[in-house]
Design a protein around this nucleic acid. Structure first.
Lengths: 118, 118
DNA sequence: CTAGAACCTGACATGGGTGTCAGAATCAAG
DNA sequence: CTTGATTCTGACACCCATGTCAGGTTCTAG
């Protein structure tokens, strides 16, 4: 599929998809004229990328991480190095802290919302 | 207490504390010479502000929200307007989506980490 | 062949909390 | 009074994913 369809199906802008490619996160074939041609599996990949961005990971971390994930029906094409494992473990801890933060903030909002309704 | 101590006790930079004041999030008395003097309750307030920032709320939303929260032992000094309640409800939904995202990303990380250990 | 839709690259802008620096004033201890 | 630590204001920079625009090329349906 081409970039417009991929954008539509993932909800991610074309601008961002091109940016992902430049960051080495998302590969694409090219038509003879130079237009990007994406495989079906790109949809899942883009969604995954978005989730990881939303989780606070930067492009370079995601770029290291993606090859170590299984994609579609195949297995992973790489295994994380010890250094990467350490980094990911740190990210994991940060995510846990963020979740805890979010839960507290959600409670705060609930309190204010409930007070206004009650 | 003064700004240095508040920064130390909350882990928030002096820069940010001054910024919070400019955004109307954090009030401070002034010494005759113009130095900020914070009440004890400021510590909790700053931590709360940080949590809300971490939850993705912007300064203006936090500024609207804070007066509707109970602070220390006292009750809230304001009640949320219907408009604010609607906005906060939307923020709450966004937070829920973010949490779901984080959980998925955490699972992704776990998968890669486990694969490298196994 | 042609028109219009879709795509290309490159460049500049944006947001918003935070870092940092400069130069001056204040505070507190000796 | 003096000195060093602390604080003040204001300005500029940064990050970094994303928006947007310009000018040109490719694709596809008629």
């Amino acid at each position: 599929m081409r970039i417009g369809e991929l954008a539509r199906r993932t909800g991610v802008s074309e601008r961002s998809l091109r940016y992902y490619e430049k960051q080495g996160l998302l590969a694409a074939e090219r038509t003879p004229g130079g237009h990007r041609e994406y495989a079906e599996v790109a949809v899942d990949r883009v969604i995954r990328i978005q989730e990881l961005y939303a989780a606070g990971l930067c492009s370079s971390k995601i770029a290291e991480l993606l090859p170590c994930m299984r994609e579609g029906d195949g297995g992973p094409s790489a295994v994380a190095t010890p250094k990467l494992v350490a980094e990911l473990t740190a990210e994991r801890a940060r995510i846990d802290r963020t979740i805890a933060d979010l839960l507290r903030s959600r409670d705060t909002l609930d309190e204010v919302i409930d007070a206004a309704r009650g």
